[in-house]
Deep mutational scan, measured.
Amino acid sequence: ATNIVGKVKWYNSTKNFGFIEQDNGGKDVFVHKSAVDAAGLHSLEEGQDVIFDLEEKQGKAYAVNLRIK
Score class of each variant (00 low, 15 high):
Thr2Cys: 04
Thr2Glu: 11
Asn3Met: 06
Ile4Gly: 05
Ile4Tyr: 06
Gly6Trp: 01
Gly6Gln: 01
Lys7Ala: 15
Lys7Asn: 05
Lys9Ile: 08
Trp10Tyr: 10
Trp10Ala: 03
Tyr11Trp: 10
Tyr11Lys: 01
Asn12Met: 11
Asn12Tyr: 08
Asn12Ile: 11
Thr14Asp: 13
Phe17Gly: 03
Phe17Asn: 02
Gly18His: 00
Phe19Gln: 02
Ile20Thr: 01
Ile20Ser: 00
Glu21Thr: 15
Glu21Val: 15
Asp23Gln: 15
Asn24Trp: 13
Asn24Ser: 08
Asn24Ile: 08
Gly25Gln: 10
Gly26Ala: 13
Lys27His: 12
Asp28Ser: 06
Asp28Ala: 06
Val29Ile: 08
Phe30Thr: 02
Phe30Asn: 01
Phe30Pro: 03
Phe30Met: 04
Val31Leu: 12
His32Met: 05
Lys33Ser: 08
Ser34Gln: 10
Ser34Trp: 13
Ser34Leu: 12
Ala35Glu: 11
Ala35His: 07
Ala35Val: 12
Val36Pro: 01
Asp37Gln: 14
Asp37Cys: 06
Asp37His: 15
Asp37Thr: 14
Ala38Ile: 14
Ala39Thr: 08
Ala39Glu: 03
Ala39Leu: 07
Gly40Ser: 09
Leu41Phe: 15
Leu41Trp: 15
His42Pro: 12
His42Tyr: 14
His42Gly: 08
His42Arg: 09
His42Cys: 05
Ser43Asp: 13
Ser43Tyr: 15
Ser43Arg: 09
Leu44Ile: 08
Leu44Phe: 07
Glu45Thr: 13
Glu45Asp: 14
Gly47Ser: 08
Gln48Asn: 07
Gln48Ala: 11
Asp49Pro: 15
Asp49Gln: 15
Ile51Glu: 12
Ile51Ser: 07
Ile51Trp: 14
Phe52Glu: 00
Phe52Lys: 00
Phe52Trp: 02
Asp53Gly: 03
Glu55Val: 12
Glu55Gly: 12
Lys57Gly: 12
Lys57Ala: 11
Gln58Phe: 13
Gly59Ile: 06
Gly59Ser: 11
Gly59Phe: 10
Gly59Glu: 08
Ala63Ile: 03
Val64Met: 09
Asn65Val: 03
Asn65Gly: 06
Asn65Arg: 10
Leu66Gly: 00
Arg67Phe: 10
Arg67Ile: 10
Arg67Gln: 15
Ile68Asn: 11
Ile68Phe: 07
Lys69Arg: 07
